[in-house]
Structure formats: C-alpha cells, structure tokens
C-alpha cells in the first residue's frame, strides 16, 4: 500500500510570485488607508485582506492541489463566519 500521497510539488517560483503579490497588496492596503473612502474604508480594507488570505489559502496552504473535500470545507467555514457576522450586525442594527 502506498503510504505517502503523491502530492504535487509546487515550484519555488510560484511561491515567490505569490509572495510578491502579497507584499504588493500590503503596500496597496497601507496606501488605501490614507485615502478617505468614507463609509467604504472598512470595506476596502477587508476586501484587500480577503484577497490576501485567499492567496495564502489557495497557494501557500495548497488548497489548489488538495482533495475536493477540503476545497469545499474551507470556503464553508468562511461562509459560516460571514453568516454569523451578518446576523450579529442585523441584531445590533435593528435593536
């Protein structure tokens, strides 16, 4: 029986590209925090953080090359968190 899974070896270059993208997004989010978006400031900051975390999840955490069950479970966890956040704010908004 084969013990170790035949996992895909990601080339170093891919990681370096993702790292460059992540650092660029960090710089963009710092720059964006100095611009006044009014009510959208929080939205812009969270949007950029979400793009960064997606890159980490998909490439660094290997989800792109993992089995289907993880590819379904991980987004579900974030959906759950989003849903709880949404319901909490509904409650606080209409109290």
């Amino acid at each position: 029986m084969e013990n170790h899974s035949e996992s895909h070896i990601v080339p170093y270059k891919t990681y370096l590209y993702i790292l460059a993208a992540l650092i660029a997004l960090t710089v963009i989010s710092v720059a964006a925090s100095n611009i006044e978006f009014g009510g959208f400031t929080v939205f812009v900051a969270l949007l950029l953080a979400s793009i960064k975390s997606s890159l980490v999840l998909i490439y660094f955490m290997h989800l792109k090359f993992d089995n289907k069950i993880l590819q379904i479970l991980v987004p579900l966890i974030f959906l759950l968190v989003g849903l709880v956040l949404f319901i909490t704010f509904l409650d606080y908004n209409f109290r």
């Binding site: 925090s33 900051a45 950029l48 960064k52 975390s53 980490v56 955490m61």
Partner: peptide, 22 residues
C-alpha cells in the same frame, strides 16, 4: 507549514483592523 500559514492568515486580518482603520 499549514499551522504557520494560519498564523499568517490571522495577522492578515489583525493588521488592517487594528493598525490601518484609523
């Protein structure tokens, strides 16, 4: 590695929420 990426992931959200949203 997965654990370390999780630590990174959490910081990606901590950073804008505490430092950037002024």
């Amino acid at each position: 590695g997965l654990y370390w990426h999780l630590v990174d992931l959490i910081w990606i959200f901590l950073f804008p929420l505490f430092y950037l949203l002024t």
